[in-house]
């Protein structure tokens, strides 16, 4: 392993969307997941739309708002207006000075993205060390995409490993090959997204072809075989109705994994589509093409699971995660008695 220069890492900062404590879905054991802001893809189905932009963003949470007008009165740029019980923000005027988000009494005005210094972040992550150690868990870097803030991500992975903490890197793989290589040097588990096997479809739905992604995965596999044999690879595929959740796509990914990665993939997770993030798009003032898409049925998920296995991938290594429609339907019914759910910021992929 090449010796990395670590001097000066202390001063590094990153824009982080959220820390998820006791995450049980982002790798082995109990983990804290760091959601970085900024992603080089813009997938049409993204469940964390607030993580795509590398910039901090101001959002308004209707359910928390008292309509007290504090933000409007204090905004130095006069970028905010309160009309019909609704706060409107002039995005051109707003300089993200954070006056409104710091002064809002109820946190209805919220700044997405917090600047963390490396030392402070490591100290925060260490708070759950006992749980990491007892569970074989650790820290997962996710996002957004950690490769978007590569220098910080490298330093964070390196620091965690030096402290004996298991590290996972959750990435879409759309980055400079050298960046990924440097991160893998400090990664115990690579959580790698393969969304669409067809390059054109990939470009259509994510904004970029998958050529770099596939090449990077093969390079990562070579690197792990040759210099990091203890490291593991898990592949994750989001099951998006009409986009990725198609027999041909799942079979194609399976074939790629079987032909090109030769047993190196320890687990392949098929992650069911969900629409819990609809309100996030609303808050960001964006349209979402999947807003009215229903959840997959259990039968559909089961079918895709069988497709994955039929394509020759080791059945014991395929896992389907997520909510099916039946489940959701019952929740919708119950919703009539429940206040709107201030959904949590981090629902990755």
């Amino acid at each position: 392993m090449a010796k990395q220069k670590t001097d000066g890492d202390e001063g590094l900062t990153a824009t982080v969307l959220n820390l998820q404590r006791m995450s049980t879905e982002d790798g082995p054991g109990i983990r804290t997941t760091v959601f970085f802001k900024g992603c080089s893809l813009s997938c049409a189905w993204c469940h964390n739309p607030e993580s795509i932009s590398p910039e901090r963003q101001v959002v308004w949470n209707r359910v928390h708002c008292l309509c007290c007008g504090t933000c409007v009165a204090l905004c130095p740029q006069e970028a905010l207006v309160l009309k019909d019980n609704e706060i409107r923000r002039d995005r051109d005027r707003c300089t993200l000075c954070a006056t409104c988000t710091e002064q809002c009494p109820t946190l209805a005005m919220e700044m997405l993205g917090k600047t963390w210094r490396l030392d402070a972040l490591v100290a925060e992550l260490l708070k759950d060390r006992a749980y990491f150690e007892r569970s074989g868990g650790g820290v997962t870097l996710s996002g957004g995409d950690p490769t978007y803030q590569a220098e910080f991500a490298r330093a964070l992975l390196q620091r965690c490993r030096a402290l004996g903490i298991h590290t996972a890197l959750d990435t879409c793989g759309m980055c400079n090959p050298g960046v990924l290589q440097r991160l893998i040097e400090h990664t115990d588990l690579l959580l790698y997204d393969l969304k669409l096997i067809n390059p054109e479809q990939h470009k259509r739905y994510t904004g970029a072809s998958n050529r770099v992604i596939l090449d990077n995965l093969l390079a990562a596999a070579d690197q792990i075989r040759s210099s990091r044999p203890q490291a593991r690879i898990w592949i994750r595929t989001p099951l998006i109705p009409g986009a990725t959740a198609l027999d041909g796509n799942i079979a194609g990914i399976a074939a790629f994994l079987v032909d090109r990665l030769d047993g190196l993939v320890e687990r392949w997770e098929l992650c069911a589509f969900n629409n819990l993030c609809t309100s996030k798009y609303e808050r960001l003032g964006q349209q979402w093409m999947f807003a009215d898409t229903p959840l997959p049925t259990a039968a559909e998920l089961d079918h895709l699971h069988r497709v994955a296995i039929a394509s020759g991938f080791d059945a014991s290594r395929v896992a389907v995660t997520g909510l099916s429609r039946l489940e959701r339907a019952r929740k919708e019914q119950a919703k009539s008695t429940r206040r709107p759910d201030p959904d949590q910021p981090a629902a990755p992929r």
Partner: peptide, 10 residues
């Protein structure tokens, strides 16, 4: 707990 949900029945 991750807000990512999982297949489960009550």
């Amino acid at each position: 707990m991750s807000s990512q949900s999982a297949l489960h029945s009550p």
